[in-house]
Design a binder for these strands. Structure first.
Lengths: 354, 354
DNA sequence: ATGAGACGTGAATCTTGTT
DNA sequence: TAACAAGATTCACGTCTCA
């Protein structure tokens, strides 16, 4: 591990000495005011100095510099991973294409537990994007452990969308005061999948933005060598202690983190998108005493009371709560069909994507 | 619908005339051999290195041209959607940031049934990326139907990852020979969610790469107007026939679920004017630990601190801010009733006068 | 000891209308 | 245009408190 600026430190390494680069650069978040949750508590923003850039141009220059330095130390058949959000990932992706990297995949990290959008002004930002790229367009022998991934994924090809929780609980590093050490610590599960898919035991992994050493900890556990560069001495110190405590895990334990799957939740609106229900159709309860109209936005209208299938179902029964899936029916060929059956049909259409 | 080059046709439209742009541009022109510069000259590949540079440059110029043209016709509070894959989306995203668009979200379309990766050299490419951006950074009144999407998604706010099947079966347009008409026809379910989330009935939607008219078909069904531009006469002809067969949904089915923000404002004083609260009555918080007195002028008095229900509520909690409507309660028949319920009663009175 | 419920928190470009 | 005021707004978990 080296403490220092990543471009300067990388220039000291020999060329073509690294199998894989994993980089979690600053996102250039460009936050302005403060943000409160509905309960008035303050959201702890990423306002650290290392994430501040004067302009897109400044961020681009920074990005070009470290991507160039990383490319020099990569072996000809090496690959590079970068993670980012919509704030920066498009710039990073375009620049790495310009520099001659060849994109192999973009991969979506779907968070099981993302922070909500508190003000209701956008979609909940529930994912981040990783780019996986070869050093050169004509690289043929880069490492991709296709069969291992397929075995871990219940004999299905590993997809480009990964469902992994954010880093919380005991895994999250805390200082003596109980505060998080690093504002953006990545989950080990993410690095695990990255390294299992694109490195072999004994490979050298370089992380130019080492932070608190997630890459190093997972690399050590998986029997990979690592080189980390971190500018902040506090982060580096925590990383060192953390990695020293890592014990290599058994092969069985490795399989566990990759096998997780979740049953896909089907929103009611998907029945409309999928054409199983048309806007304007009428839903009723099992006895046919209540009638509500399906609206295009995925809500119901019962005598002017509108909302989700559950809310309106509750209102129609004067109940506190209601499972709309089993309450509402639609007529098909003269018979009432519970909409839960339509949901099953959608699930079949949807196949089995994690 | 217009048949022609999108930049040329867009230049004929009036400025600030469009609410939303949905664009599905060519993903990687260099592979398809149809890459033209904005002046219509054909890009001629020479050798690999030069070809790569020339191709990205040309694609960037093409992208800049149509994004600029689209920005001119967008209303100040309009938004733009672009869909792409890792081949092009990073360049598109960086350029639209450079042009002054302000990214609101990136959204991942997760395919339920993606094509497998046959060679087993990469992850299965199971998603595409959409960028949703406002025309301007400081646009505040762009349309986002938050409450409709929340109802759609069973009372959870809509995430940035959408699970939707690809376009197959009866929805996929075929020609007389039984071959698919367009190589990349998008599913109507995807456009449904795009238009429900970011447009209102009656809005104008522009699609500069109209193809076989998915945007037009869904817009028509959802009671939105559309403008489509397509260069290929065959695609345009199929689009026209397809859209003509679409049955628009009824006005009632198109109504959007609206939240509190859309409701008329009721000053607190109206509760006193309407006789629902009497001057001198006592309000308290939900637990009954705080008590304030209602004054005839519509202000509260809590231990000598006077002001609006919000200010006094904040002071009573030692908080920065407070929604007085949900904080304060009044006793009715021995039970605490939140004053927000009284406000609803006033709204009903005002909605049905007499 | 156990369970129910309160509390805290995470890479966030997060309001709107009037004066 | 800047300042002020009204008032709308959250999901999944892990941990802690208290009965």
């Amino acid at each position: 591990m080296f403490v220092g600026d990543c471009v300067a430190e990388l220039s000291k390494l020999p060329a073509h000495s690294v199998d894989v680069v994993f980089a979690d650069p600053p996102y250039n978040l460009q936050l302005e005011g403060t943000l409160h949750r509905p309960d008035q508590s303050l959201v702890d923003a990423v306002d650290d100095a290392w994430d501040q850039f004067a302009s897109f141009e400044a961020y681009d220059a920074f990005t070009r510099a470290w991507l160039l330095a990383a490319r020099r130390v990569l072996k000809p058949d090496g690959t590079l991973w970068v993670i980012g959000s919509y704030h920066n990932i498009f710039r990073v992706g375009a620049i790495l294409q310009d520099l001659g990297y060849w994109i192999l995949n973009d991969v979506v990290w779907r968070k099981t537990n993302p922070m909500p959008n508190f003000k209701g002004r956008r979609f909940q930002n529930a994912h981040e994007t990783l780019i996986w790229a070869a050093r050169d367009k004509d690289a043929r022998k880069y490492t991709f452990n296709y069969d291992a991934l397929k075995a871990f994924n219940e004999d299905l090809q590993m997809r480009s969308d990964w469902l992994i929780p954010i880093c919380t609980g005991g895994e999250r590093l805390k200082d003596d005061a109980g505060d998080k050490v690093h504002p953006t610590q990545k989950p080990e599960g993410l690095l695990h999948r990255v390294l299992v898919s694109s490195t072999k035991p004994g490979d050298v992994v370089l992380d130019p933005f080492f932070g608190t050493g997630t890459t190093g900890a997972v690399a050590r556990r998986l029997g990979r060598h690592f080189v980390g560069v971190e500018r902040d001495r506090t982060y580096a110190a925590h990383a060192e202690a953390r990695i020293a405590a890592v014990e290599p895990a058994s092969a069985e334990a490795l399989a566990l983190t990759l096998g997780k799957k979740a049953e896909p939740r089907i929103p009611f609106g998907s029945l409309i998108e999928g054409g199983l229900l048309a806007p304007g159709e009428t839903l009723s309860d099992a006895k046919g005493t209540v009638a509500a109209v399906v609206r295009a936005d995925g809500s119901l209208d019962w005598n002017g009371i509108t909302g989700s299938i559950h809310r309106v179902g509750a209102a129609a029964q004067s109940a506190e709560a209601c499972n709309g899936w089993t309450f509402w029916h639609v007529f098909r060929e003269g018979r009432p069909v519970v909409i839960d059956d339509l949901r099953q049909a959608v699930r079949k259409m949807m196949g089995n994507p994690g």
